[in-house]
Amino acid sequence: MKTIKSFFVLVRWEYMPSAINETGIPALLALLFIPFSSQYVFNVIMSLLIWYGAHFIGAQINNISDYNADKKFKSYISDTIDYFGVKKVKWMIIIEALIVSVLTIGMSVIRKQPMLVILWLVGLFFACAYSMKPFNFKSRTVMNPITLALVLYLIPMLFSYLLISGSFHELSVITIIIFGIQMVPMFFMDEISDYEEDKEANVMNPCVTFGRRKTIMIATIIGIVSNMAMLFYWFFYISQNSSFKMIFFITALIFYAFVIFDFILIYRMSEPTLLKDEKKLMKLKKSIYTPVWLMGTGLATLLLIFERWVK
């Protein structure tokens, strides 16, 4: 039981529900162009399995890279490295990479889409380059959020969509690109709670470079613009006027607004004079609900797509 629990901590189980975004959005988009069938279900399941394998790999690579910092500030993660041992974790990564590679090659043959292999290799490169030298994009201010957007959303979602639908469609690709931009603020906000740790470790991510308040402001602006882009794209160019469909649209708007209002609240909490109080600093750190924001934004986007899918 301890081994299973340690493994799920190691692969950051709290982010695993995000598969609803990475596979759910492409799967629902695909239904706008292909019929529901047993083949469709099989492709969705394979997409989900490959996503989880890739997620495990990325999380483990990042945890090995962050071992020393986690030892001080997130010992529950570094403890899992100690439990398994670095050598065993590296072997786990190699085995997982081989399994995902075999599945990807197999599906590329079945779907007659060699682009699946290319997307997998590009994604694997960025997953490694984010945390590992000589690239270490995590510590390169602009490359930090760009790499995360690519490796966590754009590449996996394009991969899933291509695997499920068999080809790309303009509507779906644009939606996935906008969604990838919507995720950028989440990466900025996720760093707010780790500011002290990252600064001590000399990790020059946006939060350390710009400071907490500017980072939150940038995240809020990008969030507002990208959310409006998604809403306008689906409302003015896709949606058909009907009261029933407007319920989905308004609900999606509420989900987006909830996330932005949370950002604004955290901005107010991040006043430097307030953070001199240790209790208020800890309250700020505990107010970073990245998995919730990810799910809220993802559910809003799913509602917009579902609104179009329902006849």
Rank of each mutant, 00 (worst) to 15 (best):
K2I: 12
I4P: 00
I4R: 07
V9T: 15
L10T: 05
V11G: 00
R12N: 04
R12K: 11
W13S: 09
S18Q: 11
A19S: 08
G24F: 06
P26R: 07
P26C: 04
L29G: 11
F33Y: 15
P35W: 05
S38K: 12
V41N: 00
F42M: 10
V44G: 02
L48T: 08
I50M: 10
I57A: 01
Q60L: 04
N62Y: 06
N62G: 11
N62R: 04
A69R: 15
K74P: 01
I77M: 12
I81K: 06
D82F: 07
G85I: 06
K87M: 06
M92D: 01
I93H: 05
I93W: 07
V100N: 02
T104L: 00
G106L: 03
I118E: 00
F135P: 01
K138L: 09
T141N: 13
T141W: 13
P145K: 06
V151K: 12
V151L: 14
I155W: 02
G166V: 10
L171V: 13
I176Y: 09
F188D: 06
M189E: 13
I192D: 05
S193E: 15
D198V: 10
K199V: 11
E200S: 14
A201Q: 12
P206T: 08
F210E: 06
S226P: 06
A229L: 14
L231R: 02
F232A: 14
W234K: 05
W234C: 07
Y237S: 07
I238D: 00
N241S: 12
S243I: 15
S243K: 14
F249L: 14
F249S: 04
T251R: 03
F255P: 00
P272M: 05
K283G: 14
L284M: 11
P291L: 04
G298W: 10
L302P: 01
L304T: 08
I305Q: 04
F306W: 09
R308D: 11
R308E: 11
